[in-house]
């Protein structure tokens, strides 16, 4: 397997990154090299190996259903790029 220009275009679109033609060319080259390098994992026989998501085994971490103070509207919107009517303002969304 190797990563093609088409693949890079596809993942860039998924990741909401707009690439110029030059960037597409460059990233395809470096990514192909990296993907080629990680291909070495295909050599390993992993049929009976369980995947590890967390190296330190943990489980059943739960929080009691009690409210804590939220931010105020002013605090929340203090980080906003743009705010209007108590809301975060964004470009028009078309459904």
């Amino acid at each position: 397997m190797s990563i093609s220009k088409q693949d890079v275009k596809y993942v860039a679109a998924l990741a909401r990154i707009d690439l110029s033609d030059g960037e597409l060319e460059g990233f395809t080259q470096t990514l192909a090299k990296i993907v080629h390098y990680v291909e070495q994992l295909q050599k390993l026989d992993l049929d009976n190996v369980k995947p590890t998501s967390h190296a330190v085994p943990m489980g059943n971490v739960l929080r009691s259903d009690e409210t804590l103070k939220s931010l105020t509207q002013q605090q929340a919107l203090s980080i906003a790029v743009e705010a209007k009517d108590g809301c975060f303002k964004v470009p028009l969304v078309i459904e």
Partner: peptide
């Protein structure tokens, strides 16, 4: 695969 090699 990565998660499995992680186990190894």
């Amino acid at each position: 695969r990565g998660q499995k090699v992680r186990t190894l």
